[in-house]
Design a protein around this nucleic acid. Structure first.
Length: 262
DNA sequence: ATGGCAATGTTTCATTGA
């Protein structure tokens, strides 16, 4: 079972890119962030036409998340939950659903703007509430995937000295990531030996992508019980190439279908 | 010290992103 996450930075601008990507990579589940579309404008029919059912929560201009599910393999998203029941929030950053015996949580963590800004405080509170929610027992094993806006370690940063203490890399953000790990979530990417210099986001400016000046801030985290079943986790940097790309690349994990252990 | 680029709607600039 293949799951992917991709911050698409406007689904309106990049719908064709997503359709083409799914044609080439027919994953079972694709989580999207920054759709930037109100729900009336979500291109549900375009995804249905290529065999994907969708659940989505959007708003104009900012944020917006969606879960796409391949009809012929995992069916439609069930038990859809929009937002965090413990954290009322006008910003559409969280959607979860049940698919193939898993709880899929698609998350767009706040950016935080700069350390100690109001947005940074909101980011920490938002993450704390997510951790509180995920601390509650779930009947199904959970996969938490999305744009975390956190580079967990220095090896996830092209220039750790320049980024030291900055937003996305600050100790308090990394401590939150570590708390998710302590809660029993494994960073699927780090379950495997990976070459150095693999990132999921590159600034549009200063030729960051050709210089590979990136950060790894998009993640797939799997509950403890699922970790032994993860066969592969990789970043598709090809998707960052070409005309008018998103500034993020998709992350893909392959999880062995569940047995009696769930 | 700052901008660099991109998308959006508040549109011919300000705001946000990361």
């Amino acid at each position: 079972m293949k799951l992917a996450t991709w911050n698409i930075n406007s689904l309106n601008v990049r719908l064709q890119r997503v359709l083409d990507w799914l044609d080439a990579h027919p994953v079972d589940v694709l989580c999207l962030q920054e759709t930037k579309l109100r729900d009336e404008r979500f291109p549900r029919a375009a995804f249905e036409a290529i065999g994907y059912e969708s659940a989505f929560a959007g708003q104009p201009t900012y944020n917006g998340v969606a879960i796409l599910a391949r009809r012929d393999s995992v069916g439609a998203p069930a038990s859809v939950v929009v937002g965090n029941p413990l954290f009322p929030d006008e910003q559409q950053r969280l959607i979860s659903a049940t698919l193939a015996g898993l709880r899929i949580v698609c998350a767009y963590f706040p950016n935080g703007q700069s350390v100690d800004s109001d947005k940074y405080v909101y980011k920490l509170r938002w993450i704390d509430a997510l951790i509180e929610w995920l601390s509650q027992p779930s009947p199904l094993p959970t996969v938490l995937l999305g744009d975390f806006n956190i580079a967990p370690e220095d090896r996830d940063v092209h220039d750790p000295v320049a980024w030291e203490g900055q937003v996305l890399c600050s100790p308090r953000e990394r401590e939150r990531f570590a708390r998710l790990v302590a809660l029993g979530y494994a960073d699927a990417f780090r379950l495997f030996e990976q070459p150095a210099g693999l990132y999921s986001w590159w600034d549009y400016r200063q030729l960051a992508f050709p210089r590979n000046a990136g950060l790894r801030i998009d993640h797939i985290m799997v509950a403890e019980a699922l970790a032994p079943r993860v066969r592969e986790c990789r970043i598709d940097r090809e998707a960052r190439k070409g005309k008018q790309p998103s500034d993020h690349a998709p992350v893909i994990a392959d999880i062995e279908p569940g047995g009696a252990s769930g």
